[in-house]
Design a binder for these strands. Structure first.
Lengths: 289, 289
DNA sequence: CAAAAGCGATAGATTCTGCTCATAACGACA
DNA sequence: TGTCGTTATGAGCAGAATCTATCGCTTTTG
C-alpha cells in the first residue's frame, strides 16, 4: 500500500446531504448549526474536490437541485456517513463493554472461580463475548489471550495478581486415614495418583524430594475427576489442591497434611505495557473482589 | 434525519492505518509525506475523538502496538477508507462517461438517427448505459429523461436544438401517380391512411384544412410500417415524413407534393438550467454533428 | 413596471486548525 | 551513563473555516 490521500471531507458530505434534503443552503445551514455562508463555501469546496458542480442553483426563491454528478456523490456519501456513524457506534459499544475477551484458564479455575465471575460480567455486559481456552501447553503463552489464569508466577512481560492460595490436601478413601492431619511422611513409598508433572505438580514433586519422600506414582492424568476416580478405585491416594476437590465423591475424604505443603498459588496475568480492553479491566476487578 | 455530526476525519484514519502498518510514527509520516510531529498530533486528535488510546507506545526503539480500541477503530476505518476510495473512483468514472442516460424518442428517430449516434457514443464510452423510451404520452414530458427527441418545439423549461427538417412526401402504390410532383389538391377527398392526430400529424391536418383540403382518412395507426402496409394493401395513400420511409417497400413510391408541405421539424430537447451528465452533453454533440 | 422577498456568492475580519521545525522526555541497550 | 531510536511538546506560521455584512440575481408582488 502506498500513499493514500483521502481528500473527501465527511463534513462536506453531511452538508451535501442536508442541502439535498432541505432544498436550500440556508435551511441546511440552520439544521447543521452553520451560517448560510459556511454552507455555500463547504459546497464550493466539495465541488472543487469532485471537480464539478453538485447542485444547480436556479437563482431566486427556487430550491437548488442535485446535478447528476451530485447524485453520484450523494449516493456514495450517504454510504460513507452511515459507515462513519456505525464506526462511532462501534466505538461507543466497545467502550461500554461490548466485545470479545479471551481468557486462558484451567480446570479448577474454570469450575470453581470462573462461573460466578463470568456470570457477573455477563450481567453487567450482556453482549460481551467471553471465550475460555483450557489448552495448557508446556509453554503457557499469553499470546492471543487477554487474560490468563496460571498456577504460579509467570515470567516475561506480564502483570499479574495472586488470586488466592490453594492448599494441598491428601485425598484418600474414607477410613484409610482415621483421625486428624496425616503426616507428610506417610506419602513415602505410598501408591499415588497424580497430575502430570507440569505446572504446580512439578513444584510439589520437588518438595517431596527435598523432604526425602519418594512416592510411587502409579497413574497420572491431567483430569481432576480422573484422579479422584482412580483414588476411589483404590489405585492409591492423591495430593490435590483444594480447588480440584470441587466434585469430590462422598466416599473419599480430604485430609490436611502435617506439615502442610506450601499452597499452590493461583495468579491472574495479562500482558504488561498494553492497554487492556474495558472488558478485561472489569474482569480483573471482578476476580479480585 | 436530524443533526449529524461526523467528527471522524478520514485523514486521521488513513494515518492510523499507516502507523499500524509501519509500526512507528516516523515511518508512517514518511509514507504519508508528513512530519513525525504531524503524525503524532493526528493520532492524538484521533484518540481524542474516539475517547481512548489507539496505540500503546512501549517507548524506546520498539514499535507501537494497536490497543483493542485501536483495532476496533482500524477495522471500521479501513472500511471507511475503502468506501471513500470507491467514491472517488465512482466520480472519476462518472466524469469519464460512465453512467446512465435516458432518452425519449420516437420511431423515425429510433430507426434512422439514433443507431449511428448511439453506436458512436458507445464506442467512446463502452460502459455507458443508454436507455431509450418510446412512450409518447399526450403530454410529452421530459420528466425522468435526460434528453428528448420531439417533432416540434416544446414549451416549458427546456433547451432544444433543431436536428433536421423532415419533408413530407406522398406515398402511394407504384403507378398511381405517374410523373413528377403530385399537386396538393389531389389529396382532397382522397382515401388516406395516417398517423393518429397527435404531434406533428395534428399540424399537418390543420394545414390541409387551411388549404381547403378535406381528405378521407380511413385508417390510423401510430406504427409507420402499419401505415405503409395499409397503403400497399390499397386502402389509400399516405403523407409521411421522409424519415418514416426508412423501410418503404419497393412497390410503393414516394412523391413530392406541390406545393410542398412545411417540413416536420425534429428537435432534441433537454431540461433547461440544469447541469447535464457528461454523457448527455456528448450525446448532444454527436447528434448535432 | 417598480419594489420586495428569497436565495446564493463574495469580501473582509477573525478564530482555529494543522503543519513544520526544534527540542524535550523517555525507555532500551551497550 | 551515555547514545540511539522513539514519541511528545512548544513555538511559530500559513492556510482553512467560520461569521458578519453585503452584493447580485431571480421571482413574486403590488
Amino acid at each position: 500500500m502506498l500513499i493514500i490521500k483521502p481528500v473527501m471531507d465527511l463534513r462536506h458530505l453531511a452538508t451535501l446531504d442536508a442541502v439535498a434534503a432541505e432544498g436550500t443552503f440556508g435551511r441546511a445551514a440552520e439544521r447543521l448549526g452553520y451560517t448560510q455562508s459556511a454552507v455555500s463555501q463547504q459546497v464550493a469546496a466539495l465541488e472543487k474536490t469532485v471537480g464539478g458542480a453538485v447542485f444547480d442553483r436556479p437563482g431566486g426563491p427556487r430550491p437548488v437541485r442535485l446535478t447528476p454528478l451530485g447524485e453520484v456523490v450523494l449516493a456514495h456519501g450517504r454510504e460513507l456517513l452511515a459507515r462513519a456513524a456505525a464506526t462511532e457506534d462501534a466505538v461507543e459499544r466497545f467502550k461500554a463493554g461490548e466485545g470479545r475477551i479471551d481468557i486462558g484458564t484451567f480446570q479448577s479455575v474454570t469450575n470453581v472461580i470462573l462461573p460466578a465471575v463470568v456470570r457477573r460480567l455477563l450481567a453487567e455486559h450482556p453482549r460481551a463475548d467471553v471465550r475460555l481456552s483450557e489448552e495448557e501447553p508446556d509453554q503457557p503463552g499469553i499470546e492471543g489471550l487477554d487474560l490468563l489464569f496460571y498456577d504460579g508466577r509467570l515470567d516475561g512481560d506480564v502483570e499479574q495478581v495472586k488470586i488466592r492460595d490453594d492448599p494441598y490436601r491428601l485425598v484418600a478413601p474414607r477410613g484409610r486415614f482415621p483421625g486428624g492431619p496425616v503426616p507428610l511422611e506417610a506419602l513415602h513409598d505410598a501408591q499415588m495418583v497424580a497430575q502430570p508433572p507440569i505446572c504446580d505438580q512439578a513444584r510439589v514433586e520437588r518438595l517431596y524430594a527435598e523432604a526425602g519422600i519418594v512416592p510411587r506414582i502409579v497413574f497420572r492424568t491431567s483430569d481432576n475427576r480422573g484422579v479422584l476416580s482412580m483414588v476411589r478405585a483404590g489405585l492409591g491416594v492423591a495430593v490435590l489442591p483444594e480447588l480440584a476437590l470441587d466434585q469430590c465423591p462422598d466416599d473419599l475424604v480430604a485430609h490436611d497434611l502435617d506439615p502442610a505443603l506450601p499452597p499452590r498459588e493461583i495468579y491472574l496475568a495479562w500482558p504488561a505495557n498494553r492497554t487492556l480492553a474495558p472488558l478485561a479491566t472489569r474482569f480483573i476487578e471482578l476476580v479480585r473482589a
